[in-house]
C-alpha cells in the first residue's frame, strides 16, 4: 500500500481541525434567537467546507488537485466574507484563515498533486 505524503497528512489533519473548531464555535456562540440563525449557519457552512477539504485529502478523495485547491481558496474567501458580514468572531476567523493558508501550502507541494490525483475515486 502506498504511503501517504506527510504534507497531505498534515493538510488533512488541519482540515479536520478546522471543521472541529467551527463546530465547537457553533456550540460556544449559540444563542436561542432567530437573529442568530445567520451566524450559526456560517459556522455550519465553514465546518462543512473544512470537513470536505479533510475528506478530499484522504485515500479515495472526491476531488482532483485542481478542485481541491479551488475549494481551499473558496473556504478562505468564505471566512473573509463572514468577517465582512460580522457573522463570525474575529479571532476564530484569523485561526481558520491561518489553517486554510497552511492547507494551501501543503497542497502546493508537488507530491500532494500527484498523490491526490492518483488516489482519487
Amino acid at each position: 500500500m502506498e504511503t501517504v505524503p506527510r504534507n497531505v497528512k498534515i493538510g488533512g489533519a488541519l482540515g479536520f481541525l478546522g471543521g472541529i473548531i467551527s463546530v465547537v464555535c457553533l456550540a460556544f456562540f449559540f444563542r436561542p434567537e432567530e437573529t442568530a440563525l445567520v451566524d450559526m449557519g456560517v459556522y455550519m457552512l465553514l465546518a462543512a467546507m473544512f470537513f470536505s477539504l479533510a475528506g478530499g485529502l484522504t485515500r479515495g478523495g472526491q476531488w482532483s488537485w485542481n478542485i481541491l485547491l479551488l475549494m481551499t481558496f473558496l473556504t478562505i474567501s468564505a471566512i473573509g466574507c463572514a468577517v465582512v458580514f460580522s457573522a463570525i468572531d474575529l479571532y476564530v476567523a484569523i485561526t481558520l484563515a491561518v489553517i486554510g493558508a497552511v492547507i494551501v501550502a501543503s497542497l502546493s507541494m508537488p507530491s500532494a498533486r500527484t498523490w491526490t490525483d492518483r488516489m482519487r475515486v
Binding site: N66, L69, L70, F73, I76, S77, A78, V104, S108
Partner: peptide
C-alpha cells in the same frame, strides 16, 4: 493557481463588502 487564488479571495471579499 496560487496567484489565481489570491485574486479569488480578494474579489469575493470585496464583493461581500459592497453589501
Amino acid at each position: 493557481k496560487m496567484f489565481a487564488g489570491i485574486g479569488i479571495c480578494v474579489s469575493l471579499t470585496v464583493a461581500a463588502m459592497v453589501f
